[in-house]
Design a protein around this nucleic acid. Sequence first.
DNA 1: CCAACAGATAAGCGGTCACTTATATGATTC
DNA 2: GAATCATATAAGTGACCGCTTATCTGTTGG
Lengths: 104, 104
Amino acid sequence: MMETEIFRALADPTRRAIFEKLAGGSMNASALRQGMDISQPAMSQHLAVLRNAMLVREERQGRFVNYEVNPDGVVLIAGWLAKYRAYWPARVDALKALLKDMDQ
Amino acid sequence: MMETEIFRALADPTRRAIFEKLAGGSMNASALRQGMDISQPAMSQHLAVLRNAMLVREERQGRFVNYEVNPDGVVLIAGWLAKYRAYWPARVDALKALLKDMDQ
DNA sequence: CCAACAGATAAGCGGTCACTTATATGATTC
DNA sequence: GAATCATATAAGTGACCGCTTATCTGTTGG
């Protein structure tokens, strides 16, 4: 199940921090390590987990590998969460319903 | 971090199944086990993890303990996800922006 | 009270996680 | 093509996860 890998990937605080950093702009692995007190292999392994969970995608650029957020993963979580829309606060729920109507 | 516990709780397929079942209506632990091929202690442990992650809450009713979805957890995920709104599909994004305006 | 039932807790076990050090791959520059 | 740099992979290790069996706690009805 894809959702298992996504939630598992996000269950680690270090990986969430990496993801958050990438959400602020694409970056290579070395740049990501800046100010994070994490070894090079650890970063590489975390990025592999995030990529495997479709939360991040990569693109080689010469000697560097550029990483960026993969919208697919974000959309998957949004889709999962949508199933429980009924439990969001009423205000947000009302807005959502409105959007749905407009969407058709 | 609360988010760590939430994502960790949801990383297990069995726990997601339990949560999904509860989202369809509150239930006691025995009822939850119906058709799930899971031992009584395992169910109890899963419910403890979900409760700890604020995804589920309980209420004793005599000899039974009734479980239901705790909106707090759902809202927390929604809050986390909202930070990456920019990566949702354009249509949903537009709707969200609209909601935000209306919300003020 | 006590027998029966719902549920929680304890202890132990195999598998997985996140990390480490060491080494390999792949690209650039001289 | 050799040295260097960016990243990946391999192997090992201690901690944790989800499960099991066994036992405990709490509530009900006779």
